[in-house]
Design a protein around this nucleic acid. Structure first.
Lengths: 154, 154
DNA sequence: TATTGTTATACTCTATAACTATA
DNA sequence: TATAGTTATAGAGTATAACAATA
């Protein structure tokens, strides 16, 4: 195997049409490429974008509850249970009782969790850079600003 | 019900961190919002983004084969079978034999398919505009150009 | 031998409802 | 009554392997 042909004929043939130029479709396709690159990079750490995202939110000092994780990641609370279960089983995060609300549990990353996140983060950022390699640093910055306005509507 | 609060507390609290500013995450979140808006709009026509995408590619005059559809949409050929089955069952598309390759089948939209696509397209474009309402026409144009470079790498 | 479409199957993801303990 | 977390379950989406017909 010498060079993997990233772009083959059908894509060229079909991309010019109602769909291929649609903003939502471009968003979806760019995201699909980005997600599969990230998942490939994360596989080495037994993580996926989902579990990596939870880990990322949990190793900071925001100390989110499961409900907050669910809302931010647009997941059902029951899905977050499974994700946190997994991280907890692997010693990467812990459930702590919320002092002010005894129903709620605050999720915090362990030292092992922080360490794994650090290396996983470097790997995903490398993969991400690859996916966005067609863009300059300035263009990436601008793209992030634009996407932020869509991702966090008021 | 007067005004649905689109943005609640946890999102504000968590969006400033390693994850919330990550380009890939912003892409994923923007796409999630876009997809769910599109699916809501398409539900009225018994379509989803998947089936709508196939329909869109099939009502033009590119006459793609199933393999081409699979490759362009980044789906497994077996998934395309199910999608085309559904469109065919509903009289929106037909499988025609490819003259030059008797293994392949060319998928073409029927008149009903073209008509449904036309109205569904208006609905999705309305929904899309809603999602991207924070952006000006010029910004949307620029965003499309940028995403195209990620979505169709060379 | 390789490829197109197909079938079957298993696995993951997602959505929903119901339950408990707290508020 | 409502909310946080949990459990169970069913449905949708995804990935894989194997097959027939054709190249």
């Amino acid at each position: 195997m010498t060079e993997t042909p990233k772009q083959t004929v059908p894509v060229e043939r079909l991309r010019h049409g109602d769909l291929g130029d649609d903003l939502s479709f471009l968003l979806a396709r760019a995201n699909a490429l980005s997600v599969s690159a990230a998942n490939t990079a994360l596989a080495a750490f037994d993580l996926k974008v989902r579990s990596y995202s939870v880990l990322a939110l949990v190793v900071g000092d925001e100390r989110p509850s499961q409900r907050e994780l669910a809302e931010f990641l647009r997941l059902d609370p029951s899905q977050v249970v499974a994700l946190v279960d997994d991280l907890e089983r692997r010693g990467l995060a812990t459930r702590l009782p919320d002092e002010s609300d005894r129903r709620a549990k605050v999720i915090v990353g362990t030292t092992a969790g922080r360490e794994l996140f650090a290396v996983a983060r470097r790997a995903t950022q490398r993969a991400e850079l690859e996916v966005h390699s067609a863009l300059s640093a300035k263009e990436r910055e601008l793209l992030a600003d634009t996407l932020r306005r869509i991702a966090y509507p008021r």
